[in-house]
């Protein structure tokens, strides 16, 4: 089977043609301009991941919410489930980049971490 996809490992966006055998393993990749294209094709076929970013509620912050991301590439098919947990999460200011907002979300072994700073409202 031939699967067509757009490589997003970098902004070039190579159009890949991925040949798969009956067990869904990659036989060959064409159209890539670097090694990352092959890695991308393999992961898109076996375990597609995305960087998941959102915000969580912030108590006592200068702003009412603070931005977060998955510390590692996140399984694509679990993103919407993860969003439900992210939307129920509240953390307290002050927060710094890298703080853990949610540990091991959905037992993926991946943490949701804070990506901006909020020193908190001055009392």
């Amino acid at each position: 089977m031939v699967k067509k996809m757009t490589c997003v490992a970098c902004p070039i966006g190579c159009q890949l043609e991925v040949v798969l055998d009956d067990e869904n393993t990659v036989v060959s990749v064409a159209g890539n301009s670097c090694k990352r294209g092959i890695t991308y094709a393999e992961s898109e076929v076996t375990n597609p991941t995305r960087s998941l970013t959102s915000t969580v509620k912030l108590i006592g912050g200068i702003r009412p919410v603070v931005s977060v991301k998955s510390a590692l590439p996140f399984p694509k098919n679990m993103m919407l489930d993860a969003m439900k947990i992210i939307n129920e999460t509240e953390i307290k200011a002050p927060v710094s980049i890298g703080d853990k907002a949610i540990k091991n979300i959905l037992d993926t072994g991946i943490d949701i971490i804070v990506t901006s700073r909020d020193k908190g409202k001055q009392q």
């Binding site: 915000t55 931005s67 980049i97 990506t115 901006s116």
Partner: peptide, 24 residues
Amino acid sequence: EQCIHAGFGLHYFKEELTGPEYAA
């Protein structure tokens, strides 16, 4: 600050950052 999605810094820092992280 409002571009909380990832994809920043792939060329300059050779890693994928969110907007606030790149700015920070």
